[in-house]
Design a protein around this nucleic acid. Structure first.
Length: 581
RNA sequence: GGUUCCAUAGUGUAGCGGUUAACACGUCUGCCUGUCACGCAGAAGAUCGCGGGUUCAAGUCCCGUUGGAACCGCCA
């Protein structure tokens, strides 16, 4: 594990009963000191573990402070039976100290206690991240991340993928997230941009004849953070395959992710990953990133309510969510849920309770005739004590609102089985979607996806019906990956862009490399890019992505430790031809 | 950009109109030869984020502001 040198013969964690009698030298951090007058105990910590030092001369440690770094020479001695500490891997032995050298002294008052750092307010942890990372739990996340990275690299290599590094300083891309831009010194008024993803480069690698590419790729996006979204930068396992179909990518994606999750977690990983169309996901789960651990499903009741005069639902779409064994909850429970619904954009949350005799009560029951009731019972297989919730609103928003209620019910009723990873592929994303603000159709995901049906579909199908070979991988409600079969034919690109209102010139000027490259005989290709940070976050069951990043920025895209972003000198600004107003 | 919540010794919290702002951990001093969340005795340590207002009286109530977090927007 370690190299023997003047600082140490062993790590703190590796010493065992077999070492009794040997002279050793160890270095590490002072985790704790317990002075008993005639005898003093010191816990010494390094990355590999902890060992207890003991001395009958407490003056040896009198000048020392906790968290100082010291080098200790001594002899490994056996602890008597009753002194063994079973909580410590080195608990059967201790080091009887001969000599101490102070390698680095710590201030006696720390910004926070290392052992309790995860309970400390996050600004402070991030400002003193090097101290926070001394905490075993925090450090273990980063060590774990290293193991996952190593596994992923081995896996991709063994599958025949070639790791290629692509530029960090590149050109701004007009679509998508805001770019981080870097001013050019040599070219006045011009800027580099940090890549939002290596998308264009990996496609160019395909055009260059590389068969399978991957990279643990940094991605930079100037967008606001979330607890599962690191602002500024994050990493993806980016890969792309030539002469590959959507199925080929799915095979690799499932193999890599399921093996990684099986290896690095005790939770059950359900394979094969089910395929759910975007349309079905929006209807059944009210989101394109469904948590399949939640057993509740949404049903479409729009047609059913066509003949029923419940005023709020007239001319609206209606969704239902059936929950069994719920009618005995007190009214206050339903009122709380209704309040939650209203706070989350619903106008109200109607429901019916199914009585033991299969009659209904509840706020909406009186609007339903007995035939209506019969129809609902048989269509939805309603059982006594079930509750059927109704979500009614405009077609554009009703699915999402129903999804909000589905999630809330799943959480409130603790229906989510936390012992599993439930992956799925969301497939058949629409190529375009109508944008109210711009009053036109825009690309709903990636403008470089191949439309299903190719040129023929673009020419003949209604624009809202055109689907792309565009897919996501979702795990436990978290979007882990996007991907697509790419559009590699200039004519199809031209037509695809034309439908979004862009002429050929846009392709030529905004995406010259890709567009030109595809005029020289590119292979069909497809790929995806699972988010590495999110994978680690899921595997470690961390609620916040910053917990799995060594030096994260805060939610406001600041590095509190480095002070970034910082002002720069006038001279630096002059050199890059920038004037700050 | 919007909404909600939060801000009190080094750290984490309590205090919700009325003496000297409390507790735990940490720090410092002293005692202690077997602890490992050591123990015991003592001490230091707080412009209660900042500004204004209400009040006889504000850490506490109100308004503003700053900073943080979560959510919405945004994230091809």
């Amino acid at each position: 594990m370690i190299k023997v040198n003047k600082y140490r013969t062993h790590s703190c964690g590796e010493l065992r009963i077999d070492h009794v009698g040997t002279k050793v030298k160890v270095s590490g951090f002072i985790e704790n000191m317990r002075d008993h007058g005639g005898v003093i105990f010191v816990d010494l910590r390094d990355q590999f573990g902890m060992i207890q030092l003991v001395s009958n001369d407490n003056s040896m440690f009198s000048e020392l402070t906790k968290e100082s770094n010291i080098c200790v020479s001594g002899e490994v001695v056996k602890r008597s039976e009753e002194m063994i500490n079973p909580k410590l891997e080195t608990g059967e032995i201790e080091i009887l100290v001969n000599e101490i050298e102070v390698l680095g002294k710590s201030k006696n008052v720390l910004p926070f206690e290392i052992k309790e750092s995860t309970d400390v307010i996050e600004d402070l942890r991030l400002k003193y991240r090097y101290l926070d990372l001394r905490n075993k739990k925090v450090k273990d996340n980063i060590l774990f991340r290293s193991d996952v990275l190593s596994f992923l690299r081995n896996k991709m290599n063994s599958l025949g993928f070639t790791e290629v590094q692509t530029p960090i300083l590149t050109a701004s891309s007009p679509e998508g997230a805001r770019d981080y831009i870097v001013p050019s010194r040599k070219h006045k008024g011009k800027f580099y941009a940090l890549p939002q993803a290596p998308q264009i480069f990996k496609e160019l690698l395909m055009a260059a004849g590389f068969d399978k590419y991957y990279q643990i790729a940094p991605c930079f996006r100037d967008e606001d953070g979330r607890k599962d979204r690191s602002p500024g930068e994050f990493y993806q396992l980016d890969f792309e395959m030539a002469y590959a179909t959507q199925e080929d990518v799915f095979e690799i994606g499932e193999e890599v992710l399921s093996e990684t999750f099986k290896k690095f977690s005790k939770k059950e990983v359900i394979t094969p990953f089910p395929r759910i169309t975007y349309q079905e996901a929006m209807l059944k789960y009210g989101t394109d990133k469904p948590d399949l651990r939640n057993p509740l499903e949404i049903v479409d009741l729009t047609d059913f309510f066509k003949n029923i005069t419940f005023p709020p639902f007239i001319n609206n779409s209606v969704r239902g969510i059936k929950v069994e064994n719920l009618s005995t909850k007190p009214n206050s429970w339903f009122n709380d849920l209704n309040d939650y619904a209203i706070n989350n954009g619903l106008k109200g949350l109607g429901y019916i309770k199914v009585n033991d005799d299969l009659s209904f009560n509840g706020p909406i029951a009186k609007f339903l005739s007995s035939e209506d009731c019969q129809q609902l019972i048989s269509n939805l297989n309603l059982k006594p004590q079930s509750v059927l919730f109704f979500i009614g609103d405009k077609e554009e928003v009703v699915s999402k609102l129903a999804g909000t209620i589905r999630t809330a019910l799943g959480e409130k009723l603790e229906l989510i089985d936390d012992s599993r990873f439930k992956f799925c592929y969301i497939i058949d994303f629409p190529m375009y979607e109508y944008n109210q603000e711009e009053g036109k159709y825009i690309f709903s995901h990636n403008p470089f996806s191949m439309p299903q049906g190719g040129l023929e579909a673009l020419e003949n199908q209604k624009i809202e019906d055109i689907k792309a070979y565009q897919y996501d991988i979702v795990c436990n409600g978290i979007e882990l990956s996007s991907g697509a079969v790419r559009n590699h034919q200039p004519e199809i690109m031209e037509k695809a862009f034309a439908l979004a209102g862009y002429d050929k010139e846009v392709l030529e000027t905004k995406f010259p490399s890709l567009y030109n490259a595809f005029h020289y005989g590119a292979p069909p290709h497809a790929g995806m890019a699972p988010g590495l940070d999110r994978m680690i976050m899921l595997l470690r069951e961390e609620p916040n992505i910053r917990e799995v990043i060594a030096f994260p920025m805060n939610n406001n895209a600041q590095d509190l430790m480095m002070g970034a972003p910082t002002e720069v000198s006038e001279q630096q600004l002059r050199e890059v031809h920038i004037k700050v107003r």
